[in-house]
Design a protein around this nucleic acid. Structure first.
Length: 836
RNA sequence: GUCGGCGUGGCGGAAUGGCAGACGCGCCAGCCUUAGGAGCUGGUGCCCGAAAGGGCGUGGAGGUUCAAAUCCUCUCGCCGACACCA
């Protein structure tokens, strides 16, 4: 794809070539992005500009964007975070960092299989690799530079070999296990889903499809072993968005409470263990509730109640997740006929079964305290169960409760703890429970283990075999990768795949036919970039330790929990295994907003995407890059607007003219006289502002500062300013500062100015506070907080001097109206407020 | 329901305790032009006023402060996450 191929018909009227050729001020050259963009892309590629050297003496900077699923052509909705990453990489390079800016593809996954099913004969791999080729071409057309030598593609055997290796590491460390479990099953994708992939009881990929419950033997990763550290270490991630940390905190869902055993009445030695976060309400338990799936349901149920209980349990199991989890439906349940003894007061309380209690959380059974829990209250009212108040609000005991009282207060009806403040009582009661052997303190997490089995073809096969003699046997490392069969068919149907021999006894064995969740692939790809061609290990520990952690990680907020939590988990496991020094993968995280058009997120399916070909053929990649950075705050969703893009085209054209044809900008009678000192100051200030704002990824305001500088430079020429060394320095600084956003145009201008070497290799300007300092400032004069006048004063004026100057002004005296200022607030170089 | 975020001109937005509206789009007037979705100049929050000038103004109400878009309380609206987790 070279510039000569661009269809000229794409060139719109905006194109500078369409400007009047017989202008009164003929131009020597015009800005034609189509002529220069392919040229520089070629140069950068040939010179390997973004190749990261492992042995560089420079400080490293690891700049990473989330690797995408390759779904086809890119459009400007995808481009936004890649441009951010590229701009940062380019600036960091110029600042003297050895930048690692790699790219890759999250290439396993269902869309490839869906495409293959829709087009018989099309293999998921071909579809995927074709898409990768197109996306890669688009990225290059946008001038986005990566170290393509480090490209990783998760569906290729040289990558998934190591995904399988990491699975075996998990297995070895006791972090991978197989269990029969009621699992979430998507009837459309015909696969099991992780909890994280179930949204409101529906499949994350099919918002209109309810997830079903099935009992299957599945592989899990024990992420819950790391719950505490995943939670605690969030405190280290002070450069992550607050929102993401909060979402992960909530997802992990740590709670503190107590587990208490309630003996079953009449069945010696049997007891039901409950978990409560409110041991202070133990005396208010008036019944118990077990989840329908609780293993003791059958035992506690009496003959008289058995038929009804069985019917209820059956019904509950058949219900879909969405039916069971809906909070607005009325709670249902049945009495078992059995009773338990409340161990704190010996009271006999009935045991119920109800589906509002989840078998998967806590102990699968609760003590119900209707007086102080909304759900128990609702249930008690419905089934006419007793409500016993044990926490009195500050206003005193209520006697009859209309609602559950959830707050803290004074304990009542609670034997020896009566009269205590309930928050104080928490610890004392736990001590007492432990000393009596009734119960103990417990910490619970909402986080569940990670279900990673997928009944799909297009994923990394789980590297184990099942042998009639030896049971489950891991595939030895030297036999990795377990390759997918070439033919695209469900793995259980491919006998040549699953029929194998046991690595231990050599007898006939059956290979595991499940593949891994693709979130496993993406939980370690950022480590592979450190040594992408290493064929002895997933990553070279020395190189990984050199490049890790990622200094800047940029991607969509939709991965706030899934990908980011899993990656943190993987890194901690690798750290514990002694393979990695880092214990957190991503030092600074940024979630960019989405690009919308016509009110909808840009998407192929919505038909509102601005394609890379369209953009580069018309306004050019640089205009698209600058526009997407200028369009709005980087973390916000933004609306693509064609006239906004045109504004940026005009800005680039103006810079082009300022830099290459300053003589065409002639003094205007109306313009203020040029002042070289003013220009010098403006340049210095812009260096400071732009550098700082790029660093913070606040590209929209960075562009505004660059526009201000261009405006100031134009004013300077119109004011008759000389095009001397001062001017030349300003021009070069402008090009360096604009380069990360409009690299092709700036590189071309740099060359036309006669500079040797690439602009991308030039050094970043350093901020000089002395040069940037304003010698004179406008001092705002307020009287009683209202602006009454403004003074031009020397910077650094004393309070006394400022007061004197202010009081000398007619407007100020008029506002004071004869009164003396009783108080003066002076903010140097900014404001003086005289309060009468 | 719970938690979180956000409400600023005609529009995108800037300002995180110190001149509200930077920068840009759009619009108005003028210049240049055979022509203009080109370029250049000036203007552009609202109200009163010929002007000078004055008043009002950051969803709404209150508060803290010499000073509030910014901090606090309440409230309305929009967006997002979680959603019976005991």
């Amino acid at each position: 794809m070279q510039g000569c191929c661009w269809p000229r018909s794409w060139v719109t009227n905006l194109h500078p070539l369409n400007l009047n050729p017989v202008s009164s001020r003929p131009r020597r050259s015009v800005y034609v992005p189509q002529d220069i963009e392919p040229k520089w892309q070629k140069v950068w590629a040939e010179r390997g500009v973004m190749k990261a050297a492992d042995d560089s003496p420079k400080p490293k900077y690891y700049d990473l964007v989330m690797y995408p699923y390759p779904s086809g052509d890119l459009h400007m909705g995808h481009a936004r975070n890649y441009v951010m990453g590229d701009a940062l990489a380019r600036m960091k390079r110029m600042q003297g960092f050895e930048v690692l800016h790699p790219f890759g593809w999250d290439a396993f996954g269902l869309p490839a299989e869906n495409a293959a099913m829709q087009h018989p004969g099309l293999h998921p791999q071909k579809w995927t690799l074709d898409n990768i080729a197109r996306s890669k071409r688009d990225l290059k057309m946008m001038g986005i530079l990566y170290d393509w030598d480090r490209e990783v593609t998760s569906c290729m055997p040289d990558y998934y070999k190591w995904t399988q290796w990491l699975f075996l590491l998990m297995l070895e460390r006791g972090l991978a296990y197989r269990a029969m479990a009621p699992v979430n099953w998507c009837p459309v994708d015909k696969t099991v889903l992780a909890n994280e992939q179930v949204i409101n009881g529906r499949c994350w990929r099919h918002p209109d499809v309810e997830v079903e419950k099935r009992d299957l033997e599945q592989w899990f990763l024990k992420i819950t072993d790391y719950a505490e550290r995943l939670l605690a270490d969030l405190a280290l991630l002070d450069k992550w968005p607050h929102k993401v940390r909060l979402m992960q905190t909530n997802w992990i869902g740590r709670s503190m409470g107590a587990e208490v055993n309630f003996p079953v009445d009449g069945i010696a030695g049997e007891s039901i263990r409950i978990y409560t976060t409110r041991p202070d309400t133990l005396w208010g338990a008036t019944f118990m509730v077990m989840a329908p799936e609780h293993p003791l349901v059958e035992r506690v149920t009496t003959e008289k109640h058995r038929a009804r209980v069985r019917e209820y349990v059956e019904k509950a199991r058949k219900e879909t997740e969405i039916e069971r989890q809906s909070t607005d439906r009325e709670k249902t349940g049945v009495a078992t006929g059995g009773f338990a003894i409340n161990p704190v007061n010996g009271q006999k309380i009935p045991i119920w079964v109800a589906d509002y209690v989840l078998v998967t959380y806590g102990t699968g059974a609760i003590m119900a305290v209707p007086a102080h829990d909304e759900r128990d209250f609702e249930f008690a009212v419905r089934y006419d169960l007793p409500i016993r108040e044990v926490i009195a609000p500050p206003s005193g005991p209520q006697g009859v409760l209309r609602h559950a009282y959830l707050g803290s207060g004074t304990m009542v009806n609670s034997a020896q703890f009566g009269g205590l403040d309930s928050t104080v009582a928490f610890d004392r009661i736990c001590d007492w429970l432990e000393s009596k052997g009734i119960g103990k303190r417990a910490v619970k997490y909402r986080l569940r283990d990670w279900l990673i089995s997928r009944q799909r073809y297009w994923g990394a096969p789980i590297p184990v075999v099942y042998c009639p003699n030896d049971g489950m046997v891991p595939v030895p490392v030297d036999q990795l990768p377990v390759k997918l069969p070439e033919e695209y068919r469900p793995l259980p149907e491919v006998e040549s795949f699953w029929r194998t021999t046991c690595p231990k006894c050599d007898g006939p064995a059956r290979r595991e036919t499940d593949t891994m969740d693709t979130f496993i692939d993406s939980s370690w790809y950022f480590l592979r970039y450190a040594s992408p061609h290493d064929d002895r290990e997933p990553f070279d520990p020395e190189l990984a330790n050199h490049w890790m952690a990622v200094d800047q990680y940029t991607g969509g907020v939709e991965h706030a929990i899934l990908h980011l939590l899993y990656s943190r988990f993987f890194v901690k496991v690798l750290h514990d295994a002694g393979l990695l020094e880092a214990s957190e993968p991503f030092t600074r995280l940024f979630n960019q907003g989405m690009v919308k058009r016509f009110g909808q997120v840009m998407a192929k399916s919505a038909g509102n995407g601005v394609s890379i070909a369209e953009l580069t053929g018309e306004q050019g990649a640089d205009a698209g890059r600058v526009y997407e950075m200028f369009i709005g705050p980087p973390e916000e969703d933004v609306e693509w607007n064609d006239s906004g893009l045109n504004g940026v085209v005009k800005f680039l054209q103006r810079v082009w003219r300022l830099v290459l044809e300053p003589e065409s900008i002639v003094p205007e009678g109306s313009a203020a006289a040029a002042d070289a000192a003013v220009l010098r100051r403006k340049v210095a200030q812009t260096v400071g502002h732009v550098t700082e704002h790029y660093d913070e990824l606040r590209f929209n305001t960075a562009v505004a500062f660059l526009m201000e500088l261009a405006n100031a430079m134009q004013d300077y020429l119109q004011g008759g300013g000389a095009r001397d060394g001062e001017w030349d320095a300003a021009v070069r600084t402008l090009l360096k500062l604009l380069n990360p956003l409009a690299p092709h145009a700036c590189e071309e201008m740099w060359e036309r100015l006669g500079e040797r070497g690439l602009l991308v290799d030039a050094s970043w300007p350093t901020f000089d506070a002395t040069l940037a300092a304003e010698p004179k400032v406008v001092l705002v004069v307020q009287v009683a907080g209202k602006v009454r006048d403004k003074l031009d004063v020397e910077a650094g004026l004393s309070e006394a001097g400022a007061t004197k100057a202010a009081l000398a002004r007619d407007k100020v005296r008029a506002a004071l109206n004869g009164r003396e200022p009783s108080k003066v607030i002076y903010v140097a170089d900014k404001l003086i407020n005289l309060v009468p």
